[in-house]
Design a protein around this nucleic acid. Sequence first.
DNA 1: CTAGAAACTTGGCAATGACAAGATTGGCTA
DNA 2: TAGCCAATCTTGTCATTGCCAAGTTTCTAG
Lengths: 198, 198
Amino acid sequence: MPAAARAYHHGNLRAELLDAAERSIEKSGADQLSLRELAREAGVSHAAPRTHFPDRQALLQALVERGFTHLGATLRTARDQAAPDLEARLHAVIAAFVTFAATRPALVNLMFATKTTADEPHQKAAADTTAVVYDLINEGVQTGALAAGDPERYGLLLYAWAQGLATLTATGNLPPETANTLVAEAVSTFLRGNTPLP
Amino acid sequence: MPAAARAYHHGNLRAELLDAAERSIEKSGADQLSLRELAREAGVSHAAPRTHFPDRQALLQALVERGFTHLGATLRTARDQAAPDLEARLHAVIAAFVTFAATRPALVNLMFATKTTADEPHQKAAADTTAVVYDLINEGVQTGALAAGDPERYGLLLYAWAQGLATLTATGNLPPETANTLVAEAVSTFLRGNTPLP
DNA sequence: CTAGAAACTTGGCAATGACAAGATTGGCTA
DNA sequence: TAGCCAATCTTGTCATTGCCAAGTTTCTAG
């Protein structure tokens, strides 16, 4: 019995709760989120959410997981639609990251505020997201566009940069209109700083 | 009547509440923070905190403000104790940033999860923190160590990088022992990527 | 068609944040 | 020094919330 796709008393309550929760945190912050309020919005009883989420934390975690899945997909799309050279693709991916953060600041905060322990369910989704950057870096090292070195280290470095730019955007310290320019400079600085010696 | 230094019924309740709050969020996360619990720990009535903080959010904001003040001071100390050349000082500052984040992950998350609107009280403390990086960048541009360009843009770029590395450390995605190496690489990459043409 | 599981409801409890009104204390002034 | 005033803290209260237990409805597998 596929729980997610079932149409029962309410329909697919789980997904609707997550949608409402995402709207709520963007409007009032994550710590204002009320399960009972979500239930009211969905027109179900105050204990109905408990069927799908054992507690409040579980709902937030599901939100984070969905966020990473969404972000990963967004980054992959951006990569595939960019021009084929490394710089263009890196730029497209990081710019998409920043745009994502500008659109869903509260969700992004939540995603990166959650401690990462190995047994958490969002681990895989998060790894699939970082992999987008890592893979491009790997490719760059292999084609010789980047100086030989530990690709994982490069990946972490660039991912950290992207994450920082995204967070600054999400918190309003970086106006979205200048963000794009900064992303371009970050990528070109990164590449220029790691160009193999001729 | 200097409110902060007074010893009254309790002593300086305000500071003690903030200390307890910081301990609490590092132990159980910010959304588990309970004003009544803090009051109990301090041995005062459940409504006593209200004298110093109108509501829960105000306490969190005070925590953020204190955090930025502390971080700024930490960065300035690191800068002053480093070797006088630009790279060493940048490295020292960002490494101190990352160490700060590793020591107080929950506080750092809170600091960078809070939306920055102009009228918020922690604005100045936050600005004083970013200024440490900005000033070094400015100095680098003026002495010719960095290519001519918009210093503010450089500053934002490097600050974003530092913030990203700090957040990754705080969330456990970057083991503190490798963090130092990565910081060194980030700084040298940044400088290498922005060296003026000879 | 029936049994059992999944989804939801009703009722209840302890804890919390916020508020109002009163008590205590310390300093400032007249 | 007497007394007022403001800051600090207390007691009492309320609505809301998260979580839990027990029961009810609906779906589905066999």
